[in-house]
Structures are given as structure tokens and as C-alpha cells.
């Protein structure tokens, strides 16, 4: 276990470094003169000069790369091109709503998707299974924003049960009603994929020799399901959680935009549209590191659940 964890953590550290270098490389990849490209459609010489000075584009790229990596270690992400605020400040201000959304989604995701998967597997082939399977296949990659506006028009405008956006809400936790629709949208895709995997894993486990043996030995059905079949059914699903981190971050970007929640996703989209590259880089590094860490954790848990499966490539 330790050797595997060390090797896997080494790969993770390398991926984090690569993400940081990739974010830095964005500036170098800009076509032509970076300062001119960033100054927008009507560049005036003053703005170009300001950008060049702020991003220190006159210095050699290698030296800037070193400073950028060193800055990341000390929490210095540079400053926004449009407002001049430090990127670390912008990130800190936008972190809370995103953390609340992602944390609540993850907390609800596991019990709901495992429950659905187990429920479908136990009633294999009958109508609850067919219903769950069709729903999870169909909703697998529905664009979140389309689902979101449909839910908003049904529940916020048609029925008027829930608020349509989070505009004017001081903190998400203060008004839980605001969170219902965003969480539903965020849960839709990952629930589908994990529930399908849990169902497939459970069906395989329930057909196995050891479950048959446990039943013959008189182990109560509840115990057979939860203590014998479920752990084995979960390990392929754990690997899928790595993908879920990907979808969750993507979903957060869209959901924050639809429900007007001032989190990291909104900050990223605004920065991309304003070509505010330092902010884009900072958020890319934060999202990239989060994904790498979640992947790492999922691989370690999957390895712990089923050590014979070597998941590192």
C-alpha cells in the first residue's frame, strides 16, 4: 500500500507541476505580441505598455516561469490586468460559494448514487430497475445549463416554489432554498454515471460464489448486501469519482453562471471574456490542483478497497 501510495503521489506532484507550467505557457502561446493580444479590440499604446509592465513581458520567459512557480508556492498569483487587485484576493473572495456547492454535492452524491444503484440491482429487470437505468443513461450528458433553465422555469417561475437565482443573497448557507436547484443540476450527471457503475458492480457481486455461500450460511440478507457485496461493487465506482471531479468543476462553472452565484466559476468566465490572463491562470491552477488531488484520493481508496486492481498506469 505504501509503495503504491508513494508512486501515485509522485505522479500527482508531477501533474501539479505540469498544470502550473501549462497555465504559465498560456501567455507564451498567445499569437503575436502577448501585450497587444491582451489589450483587446482597440489597443491604445498606453494600455499595451501597462500590460507589458504588469506582466513583465520584457523579461526572459524562463525567468518569469521561475518567478511564477516560486510565487505559487508562497501564494502570490500576480495581479488582475483589469482591476489591479491581487489574484489571491479574488480567489479567496470567490472560494466560499464554490466550496459550499462542491462540498454539498459530493456529500449528497455518494449516498444517493449508491442507493439508486443498489436499489436497481436488487430489482434487476423489473420496472424500478428499467426506470432507473433509462433515466441514468438518458441524463448522462445533458448540458447543465439547459437542464437548469428548464428547472428554473418549472419550479421558480411556473410553480414559484423556489427562487430563480441567488441574486441579493448574502451567503448561500443563510438561504438554503437558493441551493436546491443548483444542487439538483450539479448532481444530475455524476449520479447517473456512478449509479450505473454501482448497479453493474452489485449485479456481478450478487451473482458471485461468495454471496451465494454467505446466503447458504444463513447470513442475513441486509448483511450480505451491505457487508459482502457492496464493498466489491464500489471499487470500480470509486475510480469513476475521478471523472466526477472533472464534471463537478465543469458543472460548477455553468451552474454559477446560470444562478448568478459569485464563485470561482463566475470569476473564471468573466476573466476569460475580459482576457484577464493572470486571473485565468490562477483559477486554472486551483482547479487543476483540486482535480489532481481528487484523482489521487480516488485511486488510493480504490486500491484500498480492492488491492489486486492496479490502477496506476
Amino acid at each position: 500500500m505504501l509503495a503504491y501510495a508513494a508512486r501515485r503521489a509522485g505522479l500527482g506532484a508531477f501533474q501539479v507541476l505540469a498544470v502550473a507550467v501549462l497555465a504559465f505557457a498560456l501567455v507564451e502561446l498567445l499569437p503575436g505580441d502577448a501585450a497587444v493580444a491582451l489589450a483587446g479590440d482597440q489597443p491604445d499604446p498606453e494600455a499595451i505598455a501597462r500590460i507589458r509592465e504588469r506582466m513583465r513581458l520584457d523579461e526572459p520567459a524562463l525567468q518569469r516561469l521561475g518567478d511564477w512557480l516560486g510565487g505559487l508556492l508562497t501564494g502570490d498569483f500576480g495581479a488582475s490586468l483589469t482591476t489591479g487587485r491581487s489574484v489571491a484576493d479574488i480567489l479567496a473572495g470567490a472560494l466560499e460559494p464554490t466550496l459550499i456547492l462542491a462540498g454539498l454535492t459530493l456529500a449528497l452524491l455518494l449516498p444517493l448514487s449508491v442507493g439508486l444503484g443498489v436499489a436497481a440491482a436488487r430489482r434487476r429487470g423489473r420496472w424500478p430497475d428499467r426506470l432507473i437505468t433509462t433515466a441514468t443513461v438518458g441524463l448522462y450528458s445533458v448540458p447543465e445549463f439547459a437542464l437548469a433553465v428548464l428547472l428554473v422555469s418549472a419550479f421558480a417561475i411556473g410553480l414559484q416554489w423556489l427562487p430563480p437565482t441567488a441574486v441579493g443573497v448574502p451567503s448561500l448557507l443563510a438561504e438554503p432554498a437558493v441551493l436546491v436547484l443548483p444542487l439538483l443540476v450539479l448532481l444530475a450527471r455524476p449520479i447517473c454515471s456512478i449509479a450505473r457503475l454501482v448497479r453493474a458492480g452489485m449485479i456481478e457481486a450478487l451473482d458471485s460464489e461468495y454471496v451465494a455461500h454467505a446466503r447458504r450460511a444463513g447470513v442475513p440478507e441486509r448483511r450480505v448486501l451491505l457487508a459482502h457485496a457492496l464493498p466489491n461493487a464500489l471499487s470500480p465506482a470509486t475510480a469513476q469519482i475521478a471523472r466526477t471531479a472533472d464534471w463537478l468543476l465543469g458543472g460548477v462553472i455553468v451552474v454559477e453562471s446560470v444562478f448568478v452565484i459569485p464563485g470561482l466559476g463566475t470569476a473564471l468566465v468573466d476573466a476569460v471574456n475580459a482576457r484577464d490572463l493572470p486571473v485565468v491562470q490562477g483559477i486554472a491552477v486551483v482547479f487543476g490542483i483540486t482535480t489532481v488531488l481528487v484523482n489521487l484520493l480516488a485511486d488510493l481508496v480504490a486500491f484500498r478497497l480492492a488491492p489486486r486492481l492496479e490502477l496506476a498506469r
Binding site: 501533474q15 505540469a18 501549462l22 472533472d246 464534471w247 468543476l249 462553472i253 482547479f287 482535480t291 489532481v292
Partner: peptide, 8 residues
């Protein structure tokens, strides 16, 4: 590349 979320 797979370490980055696709939408990001």
C-alpha cells in the same frame, strides 16, 4: 491533459 477538467 487528462489532469485538467475538460470544460476548464
Amino acid at each position: 491533459l487528462l489532469a485538467l477538467p475538460s470544460l476548464l
